[in-house]
């Protein structure tokens, strides 16, 4: 990780309240893994004080992209920045997704702007050796859920990568009506997925918990990317705890805290004390 002053080369609203920012950095382009994040300073003064953790959305030539939603004052200030402006960034941070070799199919599940790091993941999965050889068996199935059709992000990006994309909206304005976890469950009940299939999920905690439940029931390994309020982002302040079950010899004996910033943000779903 490094603290870098980076030039913003793009910062556009891609849907209501959602922005995609491009940062020029050969270092981050060369060193970032899907699922990692950066901490961004959103003002030059003391208010808002803390950095904002933003997931790496895509690694591009000579830089990275971030996809974020305006949630409060901090992200609001970031959204107002213009190409040519300089941004104070620390990264890459966190562990990232575990892309083990000898893979079967991959199932990506996104809720809202949780789709951000999954684009980088799909990119890596597609471009790793032998990925597209047998799309039928080793395909990448993407499930994107959101409130309404305009909150469905990046479906085209996944399409371009050759992924099989499923969409669900809560109001039925796009894709099937209902929760994306229902679509996921139905899909797993109907198709014959190969061995070594893995689920990767990022989104609201409720969705992640539901995905973890489905994965557990189907005995599919599942990695979830979590969010938590952070201060340092590097594992020093112990400010972003997540409850992880402690199970020496497979016997659960309570829980311990892990840090989302350093031990995560990606965890095995079965380790989390939901």
């Amino acid at each position: 990780m490094k603290q870098l002053m980076l030039e913003i080369t793009g910062n556009k609203e891609i849907s209501e309240g959602f922005y995609r920012m491009r940062l020029e950095s050969a270092y981050l382009a060369a060193n970032s893994k899907p699922g990692q994040f950066v901490e961004v300073k959103c003002s030059s003064g003391p208010d808002p004080l803390l950095r904002r953790p933003l997931g790496i959305h895509r690694v591009v030539k000579g830089g990275i992209e971030l996809l974020y939603k305006i949630i409060g004052r901090g992200t609001g200030l970031i959204a107002r920045m213009k190409p040519g402006d300089t941004l104070d960034v620390i990264g890459p941070l966190g562990n990232g997704f575990d892309l083990s070799p000898h893979r079967g199919a991959d199932i990506l599940v996104a809720g809202g702007h949780g789709v951000a790091p999954l684009v980088a993941l799909a990119d890596s999965l597609v471009n790793s050796v032998g990925r597209i050889v047998d799309r039928e068996k080793r395909g990448i199935h993407v499930f994107i859920g959101a409130k309404t059709a305009k909150h469905i992000l990046c479906a085209k990006d996944f399409g371009k990568l050759g992924c099989d994309v499923h969409v669900a909206t809560e109001d039925g304005s796009g894709g099937s009506k209902g929760l994306i976890t229902n679509s996921l469950a139905a899909f797993l009940n109907t198709i014959h997925y190969p061995l070594c299939t893995t689920i990767y999920a990022c989104g609201p905690t409720g969705m992640l918990k539901a995905v973890a439940g489905i994965a557990m029931e189907k005995h599919i390994p599942c990695q979830v990317s979590l969010e938590e309020r952070m201060a340092c982002g590097v594992g020093v302040c112990l400010g972003c705890p997540v409850k992880v079950t402690r199970s020496p010899g497979h016997q659960v004996t309570g829980f311990e805290y892990k840090m989302v910033c350093k031990d995560g943000p990606v965890f095995n779903a079965e380790d989390i004390a939901w």
Partner: peptide
């Protein structure tokens, strides 16, 4: 063990 989340508020 420390306190439950959230542990940080701006």
């Amino acid at each position: 063990q420390g306190n439950p989340a959230p542990r940080i508020a701006e």
